[in-house]
Every structure is written in structure tokens, then in C-alpha cells.
């Protein structure tokens, strides 16, 4: 199982490469650029967060409004991720394992939320559920609040994270073909047995990859949520919105303390993403060897 060879290029192999000074120059330039635009912001978050010491840091995190923002963010992700996970699996089953007319158009439609500005994503829900929107009067008559309330935040987040899992699974499942499933059926497995015992083990790393990205975006979404939330402290603020409020109140240390939670989340996301990518490549190259 020599996997992951795809990325390991044979640098230095053969005479065909650049002179050493060119190589060092290019590496230095690339690293300088990345240090300036990636590492410095990342470091800045944590340095600023701990600017006033650990005490102040923990104090900022224990603040009731912050706690409630964390709770709301967790709730939002807990609703969004399963919804989009289920959708992603179902959609990729239909798209990758069957062929039908209009398939590539359907894939484009699924990708749509990626190309819509977050602000517009929030706005469309205001246009439907807001006071002046299609359902606004009816909702008000029945005393249901969606915009400037939790359901609106969840809806907008579902929209912006909609494609993550599906677009990860579709190409993966396409690359795996149908033969293993067909083999399972000829051996007498039912539809569900085929999915859980044959399809699922082959896509589990792809699922993890999609879920982790979907979760990161769900917890970190700002633009769309900011339009529909109404910014009610302690009730309709997610972590990113709480960061904004603290920052605008010039409470920088607290703002960065809360922001550091999200930065940690980002680092964890990257770590899991890297591992699942590696595992994914492993399973793909094994599949490739088998062909």
C-alpha cells in the first residue's frame, strides 16, 4: 500500500531543475508572501487575544453574552451539518451512480451558493420571511419569528454551507464507479446493506472532509448571518457576530479572545482536513492500483 505517491514528486531527480540560487530565491519569495499574508494574521489573533494576560482572556470567554453566542453557534452547526450531510449523500448517490439528462446542470445549481455573495444570501431570506417579504404578514399574524431570530440564522447558514458535502462526494463516488455495488447486489445484499457495507466505507473519509469544511463555514459564517440576525446580544448573536460587537466597542482584547476560539477551530479543521485528504488519496490510489 504505497499510497500518496501522487504528491511526492521526484524533485532533484534528473538534471532538469533550476540553479540552486533560483530555487532559494523562489522558495524565499513564496515563504515571505505566505508569512506576510497567512502566518502573521494567524499569530496576531493569538497575540492580541492574550494581550492582557490569561486572566483577562478567560474572563472574556466566560462573559454570559459570549457563552450564549457559543451556544447559538453550536446549535446552528448542529442543525446545518446533518441537514447538508444527508442531502450531500443522497444527491451524490443520485448523481454519481446514475446517469440522466441535465446532470451537469444540476451540479452547477448545487454549486450556486458558493458564487453568491454572503450578503445576498442573507438578503434573499429577508425578502421571503421579513416583515415586507412574501410570508412576512402571515408569519407575523401567527406570531412566528424567523428573521432576526434563530431560524433565520440557521436558514442562511444552511444556504451558504449547502454545497460543501455534496461537491466533495460527487466526484469521489463517480471515480469509484458502480461495480462494487453491483457485485454486492449479485451476492444478495439489499439496497441498504449495499450502501452501508460497500459504499459507505469507500466514502467515509470524503464524508469527514466535507463535514469538517461544512462545519467550519457554518460556525464562522458572518455576512449572511449578519443580515438576518438582528444582532440582539445574548440571543441572536453567533460567535462571529459577537466578535464584531466587541470589536466595534473597542474591546479589542475580548474581541480577539473570542476570535481566537474561531481561529483554533480553523486550525483543528485544517488538521482534520489534511488527515482526511491523505486518507482519501490513499483510498483513491489503492482503487487506481486495482484497476
Amino acid at each position: 500500500m504505497q499510497a500518496g505517491k501522487l504528491t511526492q514528486r521526484s524533485e532533484g531527480k534528473g538534471a532538469i531543475t533550476e540553479p540552486a540560487w533560483v530555487r532559494y530565491l523562489l522558495i524565499t519569495a513564496a515563504l515571505a508572501f505566505l508569512a506576510l499574508f497567512l502566518l502573521m494574521p494567524l499569530a496576531a489573533v493569538f497575540v492580541q487575544a492574550l494581550d492582557k494576560g490569561w486572566e483577562a482572556y478567560l474572563e472574556a470567554l466566560k462573559e454570559p453574552d459570549t457563552i450564549s453566542a457559543i451556544r447559538l453557534t453550536l446549535i446552528t452547526a448542529a442543525v446545518c451539518v446533518p441537514l447538508n450531510l444527508f442531502f450531500g449523500i443522497v444527491a451524490s448517490w443520485a448523481i454519481a451512480k446514475f446517469s440522466f439528462r441535465g446532470k451537469s446542470f444540476l451540479i452547477t445549481l448545487i454549486d450556486l451558493p458558493f458564487s453568491v455573495s454572503p450578503v445576498v444570501s442573507g438578503l434573499i431570506y429577508v425578502l421571503i420571511f421579513g416583515l415586507q417579504g412574501w410570508l412576512g404578514p402571515w408569519l407575523q399574524a401567527h406570531d412566528i419569528k424567523i428573521i432576526f431570530a434563530v431560524p433565520g440564522i440557521v436558514l442562511a447558514t444552511v444556504f451558504v454551507t449547502f454545497p460543501f458535502i455534496a461537491r466533495e462526494l460527487i466526484p469521489l463516488m463517480e471515480s469509484q464507479g458502480r461495480e462494487e455495488e453491483e457485485a454486492a447486489l449479485t451476492l444478495g445484499a439489499s439496497g441498504l446493506q449495499t450502501f452501508f457495507r460497500v459504499t459507505f466505507p469507500n466514502i467515509k473519509w470524503g464524508i469527514l472532509y466535507g463535514v469538517i469544511l461544512c462545519n467550519a463555514r457554518a460556525m464562522g459564517e458572518f455576512g449572511a448571518v449578519s443580515v438576518v440576525s438582528g444582532h440582539v446580544r445574548g440571543s441572536t448573536n453567533t460567535i462571529p457576530l459577537q466578535v464584531e460587537i466587541l470589536y466595534n466597542e473597542y474591546n479589542y482584547a475580548a474581541a480577539f479572545a473570542v476570535a481566537s476560539l474561531l481561529a483554533l477551530l480553523a486550525l483543528v479543521t485544517l488538521a482534520i482536513k489534511t488527515v482526511s485528504e491523505w486518507k482519501l488519496q490513499q483510498s483513491i490510489s489503492v482503487a487506481g492500483k486495482e484497476r
Partner: peptide, 10 residues
């Protein structure tokens, strides 16, 4: 992976 608001204030 980094939420945009965090990137913004940083």
C-alpha cells in the same frame, strides 16, 4: 477555514 470576521479584525 478562518472565519471572515476573524480575518477582518486581525
Amino acid at each position: 477555514a478562518l472565519p471572515t470576521a476573524v480575518a477582518g479584525i486581525t
